[in-house]
Nucleic acid binder design. Structure first.
Lengths: 69, 69
DNA sequence: ACATAATTCAATATATATATTACATTGCGA
DNA sequence: TCGCAATGTAATATATATATTGAATTATGT
């Protein structure tokens, strides 16, 4: 499984749109991040964490060699 | 205190240069990140974690409103 | 099946992370 | 003090995250 943002997002009952507004970016960017298409900045990661009430490790941690694409 | 990268780095006895090489970026970028001058990508954060044997939360977590610049 | 909301996807534009080169500064051992 | 290694910093260049617009697709409820 790519990342856990989507799961955390629905857990707090937010749509991509609403999450995007909460963290101050666009819906498309949320979509791309959830799909693992790229590589958000630390600041953005943190804001997503705050919005869905998770920590960095919970949302973004991957073990060293885990998913080699 | 800005971030904990520098501390973790010296704990594993690496110079900025060596850490940079280990994670595949330049020394200057490490310097800027340690000084809190910007905002690395998630991928880079993870690689730094692996190199110094810490987790994202240990190195990069900040509470919501903590250091407002 | 239809209507609507939620999400994915593409193209181009902009902001910014990172590279590169080079020089300045600091600290430490001889 | 001298010399060197580690670090800080600045200018410009490049790669890429993110914005923007808009269209296509997928889900959900009726």
């Amino acid at each position: 499984m790519e990342n856990k943002i989507k799961i955390a997002r629905v857990q707090v009952d937010l749509t991509q749109q609403q999450l995007a507004e909460k963290v101050g970016i666009t819906r498309q960017t949320i979509s791309l991040i959830e799909k693992g298409k790229y590589n958000p900045s630390l600041k953005l990661c943190l804001e997503i964490c705050y919005a869905v009430n998770k920590t960095l490790d919970e949302l973004f941690w991957k073990e060293k060699g885990s998913d080699e694409k």
